[in-house]
Design a protein around this nucleic acid. Structure first.
Lengths: 212, 212
DNA sequence: ACCTGAACACCGTTCAAGT
DNA sequence: ACCTGAACACCGTTCAAGT
């Protein structure tokens, strides 16, 4: 009962391995070793490494769905999309290079796509067309993906090369002039505040164009 | 004179190889073969493969800068950011997996960052603070990155598996119910129209929050 | 200064063979 | 049904040696 590996165990272990070792350390052999089997054993459960990556992405999206479902239903599309954006970012941030690795990968689970239905129902009831609802979700998703890719890259670069993102170092690197760019760089904040501010801009655009 | 390889020749050939063979085909040996040398020769010009990828990303961003500089200066931030978004998307689309491969990679060229200065000068002259200008560029960049990642993934999936994105196939895959999700899927357009519509939403948000 | 040949440690994947 | 041992073709990278 407790022995033998399953698809789910493999995917879970793969996500842990990604977080521990990074994308380059996510090798079939290392994953097998973590599961106490030899590499070829994995091929009984998974067609190839690409399928494993797809499964990992689907699992992450399942967690997004679950985390989102656990949130109180909001008063309208604005609340709903705010919660969705925060949950999506949080799940991406949970994994090393999460946004880059898991964005745009095909969802192998219909339920993850079907979760949009209750949202669409509520939003269309309050005046949006289905096409509007679709645009709204996709614009917010695109923004979150792009934001977190940049965010994780910056965070990672700060670890490997701490001087890189120090204000003084950046100014020197930029050379003479570019005073406004430097000033903006000094003011630039990181993390949640910045995310909320940028998300607010995107949602304001949805309100302006689709009504709300 | 005509013999011997240079950093620039390597980067150019690497971009071509990426487009021809995809990211998995972009190997040091294949690249060397394309340049008529053996693999170790590249290590005289480039520290390692990661540095090559950084150089490729920088080159793409240089082309974004150049293409953007060739555009007529707009009447204000709205025109400027529209042109920037279109140019960024166009350069990403030019390369296989361009958005995924080149987004979030560190820019090794100060000039590419310094190009923001004239924009910031004009925008602050019309009322934005430097921090606003920075937010605006970053929100638009995040949106474009996320949009094109999804766009290229969809395009690629459509090539390998044409049934995947057909309406009927998708409906069957989704199963019973989810009628609004299906309806939205049927209406969903691709490409430029969709990009312009979504970009318009983001810019409307900037206008609403930062003034315009 | 610039490039090659040979080698190293390591990949993803296949497959006959084991239980 | 599920896993292993051995093997294959291929990686990125190093380095002594060539010119």
């Amino acid at each position: 009962m407790t022995k033998g590996i399953t698809r789910e165990l493999i995917v879970t272990a793969a996500l842990e391995l990604l977080d521990d070792q990074g994308i380059d350390g996510l090798t079939v052999r290392a994953l097998a070793s973590r599961l106490d089997v030899r590499a070829p054993a994995l091929y009984w459960h998974v067609r190839n490494k690409q399928e494993l990556l797809d499964e990992m992405a689907t699992e992450v999206m399942r967690r997004v769905t679950a985390a989102f479902a656990a949130v109180q239903p909001g008063a309208g599309w604005h609340d709903d999309l705010t919660a969705y954006a925060r949950v999506l970012r949080a799940e991406y941030l949970r994994h090393r290079d999460g946004a880059r690795v898991f964005s745009g990968t095909r969802i192998t689970e219909p339920d993850v796509v079907r979760m949009k239905e209750p949202l669409f129902e509520r939003w269309t009831a309050s005046g949006w067309k289905p096409a509007d609802a679709d645009d709204a979700v996709d614009v917010v998703t695109a923004f979150v993906v792009g934001f977190v890719i940049e965010e994780q890259e910056r965070r990672q670069a700060a670890e490997t090369d701490p001087t890189r993102y120090s204000a003084a170092q950046r100014d020197a690197w930029l050379g003479e002039g570019a005073s406004l760019v430097k000033e903006a760089g000094h003011l630039q904040d990181d993390g949640d505040q910045r995310f909320e501010r940028h998300l607010d801009i995107v949602l304001a655009g949805l309100a302006a164009r689709l009504g709300g």
